[in-house]
Computed example of a mutant assay.
Amino acid sequence: MKKNSYFIICFYVCLNGFSQNVGIGTITPNINAILDIYSENQGFLPTRSVLVQTILPNPLSQHSPAMITYNTFESQTYTPVSVHDGLYYNDGAQWNMAGPNAIMFGDIKHSLATTDHNGWYLLDGRSIALLPTTAQSNAISIGLSGNLINMDDSFIKTKTPTDNMGNITGSNQIVLTQAHLPNVNFSGITALAGNHHHEYSDQYSPIQSLGLATNVLALLPIINVNVGRPENLTATLFSSTSSGDHSHTVNVNSGGLDVPIEATPKHIVTNVFIYLGE
């Protein structure tokens, strides 16, 4: 106990006794640091606290800019103000997670969240002018202008040399054309049937006429008289003239309706956010 008290007193005296900087574990502290802690086999262990929500100062009495602590509490549900296990810093208005992964402007993430949160903005096609001033500047700095990208019903794809960053292209439907078929030849010719003819039946109802001529009235034309009109005659079978050994070409319609193929694979539905800072 005396040893710890002695260390605290010495540390306090050192901080107040030097106008420049203080070194712990080194006699040559960095001239740009008010406190330089050096060790080759130990690390700096910050305070461990239980945060409640990012917007609440707890366990502090109020938000304090630059305050750092390691949060040990994990929220049971995900909301824009949830906290998770990790290092947090306070910006004077809320707690912000400092790790474990660094976040850069323009980073993209999928999330089940539905609204903007902690510097992440929903890619819903809105005008950049509607964003906070800082987010507007950061959006322009990474090449965005006019509107945010609208990621509705879209997948993320990596860039090719000819792609423009941030463009939405492609379709969730595929339309097959003849050019998409294999490059092979298909014939539609029937098998040979030798020297043959074709038969067909015909049924008709003829009108038979009787022509009468007279010597009395030589100038009169021949008189045609209908003498019979059969009501029902049996069909007669006829044969065409033989055409030699030949084949026939057959055309068959596919019956297709040119309906596009739905190409969207099985997937999970999320929202896509971009980090533009706060």
Rank of each mutant, 00 (worst) to 15 (best):
I108A: 05
S111T: 06
L112K: 08
G99I: 10
G86M: 03
H110M: 11
N96T: 08
P100W: 07
D116R: 01
G92S: 06
M97A: 09
I103V: 13
T115P: 01
Q94C: 12
Y88A: 02
A98F: 08
Y88D: 00
I103D: 04
N101C: 13
N96A: 08
V83P: 00
M104N: 14
M97L: 11
G119D: 07
D116G: 05
K109F: 00
T114N: 09
N101F: 13
S82P: 01
Y89C: 10
Q94G: 14
G119T: 03
N96H: 09
T115C: 09
D107M: 06
H110F: 15
H110Q: 15
V83K: 02
D107T: 06
T114K: 09
I103Y: 03
I108D: 01
A102R: 12
S111N: 01
V83Q: 03
N101W: 12
Y89V: 11
G106N: 04
S111H: 02
A98Y: 07
D91P: 04
W120Q: 00
A102P: 08
P80L: 06
M97C: 10
W120I: 00
A102S: 14
L87H: 03
A98S: 13
N118R: 13
P100I: 14
P80S: 04
P100Y: 09
W120F: 02
I103N: 06
S82R: 02
S82N: 07
N90T: 10
S82Q: 03
D85Y: 15
S82K: 04
D116V: 03
A102L: 13
Q94I: 11
A98R: 05
A98W: 04
A113R: 09
T115E: 10
A102D: 14
N96R: 10
N101M: 13
T115M: 11
V81P: 01
H117P: 05
P100L: 12
M104H: 14
L87Y: 06
V81D: 12
F105S: 12
A93C: 13
K109M: 05
Y89I: 14
L112R: 09
H84F: 13
W95A: 12
F105T: 15
G119A: 04
P80C: 05
G119V: 04
G86V: 04
Q94E: 15
W120Y: 02
L112G: 07
S111D: 05
G92E: 05
H84Y: 14
P80T: 02
T114D: 02
H84T: 14
L112F: 08
P80D: 01
A113L: 11
V83C: 02
K109L: 01
Q94Y: 11
H110W: 15
T115L: 09
L87F: 05
A98N: 08
N96I: 10
S111Q: 01
I103M: 07
H110G: 12
I108L: 13
G92Q: 06
G86E: 00
F105M: 14
G92K: 04
Y88M: 02
A93K: 15
